[in-house]
Structure formats: structure tokens, C-alpha cells
Design a protein around this nucleic acid. Sequence first.
DNA 1: AACATCGCTATTTTT
DNA 2: TAGCGATGTT
Length: 682
Amino acid sequence: MAVRNSSSSRPRPRRATAPARGLEPPALAGLNPEQLAAVTAPLGPVLVLAGAGSGKTRVLTLRIAHLVASGAPPDSILAVTFTNKAATEMRERLARVLGPDAAARTVVGTFHAFCLRVLREHGAALGLPAFTLCDAADQLAAARAVLRDLRVPEQHVAPAQLQARISLGKNRLQRAEDQDDDLLRRGWLAYDEHLRRNRQLDFDDLLLAALRLLEERPAVRRALQARYRHVLVDEYQDTNRPQYEIVRRLAEKHHSLFVVGDDDQAIYGWRGADVTRILGFAQDFKGATTVRLQTNYRSTAGILEAANRLIACNVGRHEKTLRTALGDGDSPKVVPQADEETEAAFVAQDIAARLAAGARPAEFAVLLRTAVQTRPFETALRAAQVPYRLVGGPSFYDRKEVRDVLAYLRLLVDPDDEAALLRIANTPPRGLGKASLDRLVADATAAGRPVAESFDRAASVEGVTPVAAEAASGLRATLRTLGARAAAATDLVALVRETLNAVDYRAEIERCPTPEERAARIAGVNEVLNVAENLQRRGATSLRELLDRLTLKEQDDRTAEAPGERVLLMTLHAAKGLEWPRVYLVGCEETLLPHQKSIDTDTVPEVRRLMYVGITRAQRQLTMTFAATRSRYGSRSPTLPSRFLYEATGQAPPPQWRPAPATGEGRGRRGKKPPAQRSASG
DNA sequence: AACATCGCTATTTTT
DNA sequence: TAGCGATGTT
């Protein structure tokens, strides 16, 4: 991707310190004393409080190298991250430091990938012999089915909302039975039952099942503790309860636990991450060493000053103050604008002017609070002829054809997979329409058997047309044949091709009305083949493994692909871990940043951290903007500058922050206190 | 099965 | 305002 991560490209701290015993001098040379202390901390629990831009990935990598140099076998090392991207980067860096062979023996992956690995190996001990992964779309489908079965009008509870609440509950290690909310309790129980019937685990279940294994199966626990003697965790502030418990169990035998994180960058509380884990590390793990990395190699002094000021407004944190290793640089700028259109136009023109002066597009990022803010920016950037790319949005894996192909493959591994079967039952059209399909599902539900079995006996199910019955049983026969072949397949890519031919997926593509759409679908299918080939090269040997890795999106290159020279446009959440020379932090208004929802739910400190993350993305230019009026939900209302602007600059709002809006409304507030909240939603 | 229309809602999102 | 899903129309 266009953005390089952390310390790879920035000046190294100058002073070399004495090399630690066991690790080659060149590796440790160039670490500053804080980093060196972290890397060479005594074996045992270590908490590294890594401020933004302080070189944490480097420390993590060198710690592993240090362990290996001190005699730890590489395969005794487990490093967990939150995203595939972080895992990939860690693997690459490890290969450079340890050499490819030793690096390949370490286990580096996301929490979910690690848990899946453990479950595939030891799941039988829990009576979990075979399962497929339930991805986001399946989760939603399950929630929808549950609401339908409970006969709850969807107007009252959106499937997505039920799913989110179940997920949050699981991520807080709560139990369905204990939920006070009647609908949530019943919905959650039914959801779990739905998944169980389909032998699926959702992403959250992966963590929970792995934890159960560790807690309830001592033999497995001992085996895992012996295998993974050294545990390292990245982004520790983002761990949720199940993840924390897994780590604790793994490390409780040997106490070699090295966690790196920054409580000031904890921005995922709303999905179950629990900052108290990083705050309480020293109490949780006796004899822990704590190291603070406060030297920042990313941003100039003025930017860090704003960041430090802002975050100091939060209480109950591990206090840290970032010091720049670079020069003074320019102060961050605050630019008021009349409305979201002029805000976007200002940013686009400012970027265009700097491009004209020699800057490159990839030096810039525009960071927003919400996805709906993107539109005016897209329009303005296009008008100013600035090349940009919107990061985020739907993934490659959300595309219809990709999901279709994956559904077929899942059926080869598990012919009873209901979600997959229903998805492709009439894709391409085989005369198995909605009415007949409903009958088959009803028949299965009534008889308490898998829908797949009703497909087999479709001819005797009442209300199913002969054509549909023939289609249903024919489909099953085709899948059986393919499944038998899949079990023995060595060339996975060939198997995928063969499957698509056998089910005539081409017919589905031909249904697209426009040639462009057809081409896009074909490209999507080809991309699946590419990814499959890639994964096969990287060691996927069975169709099941291929599917696992596809579902965990190990190859999602939405951000990795097509770097190019483009200004990036993304949400603040998506910007975490990235950096650019020039950053625009837009929409800095009360009720947007912080969002009204955050104000209502008393989670402003978390948004302050989000703002902090945004500020600390900037290397040498930071421009914060706000609009005096903003159109939301179809009506325009006056806004107030974000309290974070006052906090970061330490100033009362200067007069120039009070632009006279065209309407004459929305006079800025003077005074040094954060402005009173006003609802902008009308 | 494809398309129009109504009514409702409206942060952040990885695996 | 716009996008989604459910419902109604062709």
C-alpha cells in the first residue's frame, strides 16, 4: 500500500547502546535506551507502553530475535496481532531479522487465526470435530433467520443490531442466559442454536471455543503451554476479555509474556476491547516489567504538542508524553469553514496547491469521523483533479460472485452447510424458485433435519414443483461428486475451476445485463482463483484450509494492492497504525467529533483517543477543519467547534474560528470552556 | 422475477 | 438526503 508502516523509513535514533548478550550487535545497534530496555527486558511479564510512532513493531520483532538469540527455539514463539496486515508485516520483518527459515518456524498470526489453528488441532477434545467458519454475512443471515423464527417484526430490531449485540456480549465474555433483555437473550440462544445446527463457528466463537479448550481440557492446556513458551501480543489495548483470558492461560505456566500497546490509542471499546487490561497489566501479572517508549520518530514538535495536550485531558491513563526525535516543524493549523462543501473544497484546493508546488499525492491523507462525510470530499477532489482513493467500503469478499464461489466450495467441505446451500440453490437459475425453496426449508425445520436432506427428497416434499425437485436433488448429486473429488484434491486451483464448470457458474455471469458487469464478475472469479493460488503456494494443502484462510481474509489486499500516487481518504479508525507527511483531520465539530452518540453514551474519552490517533498520524503537516453549518439527515444546522480543538491547542476559540456563515446563523461561542452541547440533529 | 414505492433510520468495523 | 428492506405492481 502507499503508506509505509512505522519505523522502516524514518531516521534511526543515533546512539548505539551496548549489545545485549546473545544478539548480534547490528540488530540492536540504533535502538534508543527505552527500546533497548524493552527488547532486553528480563524474561517474564513485560508491558511495553508504546506511544504513537515510537517504533513498537521494531521492538516486538527484535524482542523475538532476542529470545531466539538467547536460546528459545523459534517454534516456541507465538506472536498475536489483531489484523492480518500487522501479522504479515511482522512476518516480513522477522524474516529479515531471523532469516527466512527460523522466521517460518515462529507462529505469527491474528488471534482468530491462532484460535482456529488450535481448534483444528485439538477441537475434537471439546466434541468439535468439524466446523466451518461463519463469516459476517452468515452471521447476519443467522440473525435474520432467528428474528424470523421468533416472529419479531424486523422493524423493531434490525438483524444487524441483534448480531452486534450478541457479538458484543460474547466479546465481553457474557452468557446468553444472563441477558436481561428478553429479546437479546432469546435471540442469542436461538442464534447459537442456529450456528450449532449448521456446525458453524462465528469469529467470536473461535475465541470462546479456544478459551474453553484451555480452561476445560488440562491436557490440551499443558500441550499448548509447552508448545508456545513465549507469547507476544501486539496492540494489547485492543484485547477483549476472551483474548485476555486466552493469553493469560497460555502464559500462566512460563510467564514469558511480552505485550505492546498504548492505552491512549484504545479506540475499539465499542466492540468489546477492554482498556482496563492494559491499565491493570502490572496487577494481573506479578513481577511485570513496564517500559515506556516515549520517543517519537514520526512527527515534528508542534504536532506532538497538540497530541500531548489533547490526551492529557483524559484521566486514568498510563501517563506518557511524546518527545519528538525530529525538529520543530510547523504548528498544526485550524481552519474554519462555512459548510461541508467549502470544507471539502478548501482541502482539495490546498492539496492541489501543494501538489503544484512539488508534493506527491501519496504524502496526503484526509481523515474523517464517519463514512457519510466522504461524499463532498470525493466531489471536491475530483473537481480539483487530485487523484485519490477511498479506503474502506465493501471488501472484495463481499462481492456477489466471490461469495457464490465460496459458498460452492464450502458445500464441498460440508454438504450440509445451510447458509451456503440456500445461497447458491438457484444460482445460476435452475428452476428452484423462492416458493419451492421455502417449502424445502419448512420441511427440514418441521422434520428437524438439515435442509440438504430435504433437497435429496425434494420430489416427495409437498408444494415443490417437479422442476424444482429435480433441480434440488440434481444439485446435491453434483455437489456429492465434486465433494468426493475435493477430498483427494491436490491442486486446489484446478478443483475450484472444475467446480465452477460443473455447476455452470458461467450461466450466472451471463445473466448480467451489461458487458461491464459481466467483465467485473469474471474479474472477481479470477481474483478468487489468484488468491487461491497464492494461498496454495503459501502452504494451504486442503480445501478446508483454503476456505479457512479465505474466510479469515488472510489475503485481503484491499489496502495492500494498487499503491500508486493517490491521496487517501478514510475514517479515523481505518487510519490507525498508518502515517503520512500531511494529514487533514476534518469535521472537527461537536456532535460529529465527538459524535452525538458518544456524548450520549459517555464515551467521549474514547473519541478523544480517536482524535489523538488522528493527530499522531501526521508527520509534518496537520490541518484540522470544521464547518460552521453541516447538513445532516437532510437538514442543515449550525455547529460548534469541537472541544478537542480547544484542548489540543490550549486556546479559547480565537475570533477567526468563528466564520460568519452565509446564512448568518451559527455564531461561534466565545469563552475558554468547551462549548455546551447542542443537538445538531433536527 | 424484475421493478416501483413507501417508510424508516441515520458512528466507528476486524476477524 | 439517501439507502435499505418490505411490500406492492407489472
